[in-house]
């Protein structure tokens, strides 16, 4: 149970970072922390105590296997996370070129 709670704490750490940090890159890193907490949660979902890798052995059908589906989901989600992170980084580099700073307080053209 403690592991599940730690996932949620990690999520909140990421959220705290997104809300309070002023640096664009630090916001991106905080988003990645949130993402990783969700992946950890999924990895825990598939875990079964005493389970082995889900490669079915015909000789011994009664063994306990871990749930393979969350692992597949996490892999897919990691790929998506790669795309979002790189997209965010590209935007940050462009923003830095336009404004000459990473400080989010200086970047406020849009309002209202």
């Amino acid at each position: 149970m403690i592991a599940y709670i730690m996932c949620f704490v990690l999520f909140l750490v990421g959220l705290y970072g997104v809300i309070t940090k002023r640096n664009l890159v630090k916001i991106a890193v905080s988003l990645s922390i949130m993402e990783i907490s969700v992946f950890l949660f999924f990895a825990l979902l598939g875990y079964i105590d005493g389970g082995v890798a889900p490669i079915v052995d015909p000789a011994d059908p009664a063994r306990v296997y871990v749930d393979p589906l969350p692992q597949a989901l996490v892999l897919t989600a990691i790929v998506i996370g790669l795309a979002t992170t790189s997209m965010l980084m590209a935007i940050i580099i462009r923003l830095y070129r336009k404004y000459g700073t990473f400080d989010i307080r200086e970047i406020k053209n849009l309002r209202g």
Binding site: V18, M34, T84, M87, L88, I91, K98, L110
Partner: peptide
């Protein structure tokens, strides 16, 4: 890729990212 567009996209990505998680 001007100032406004990039800023809007950054805002959209951060909030959209939180929504996805």
């Amino acid at each position: 890729v001007e100032k406004n567009e990039l800023e809007a996209s950054f805002k959209y990505q951060v909030l959209g990212g939180i929504a996805s998680f």
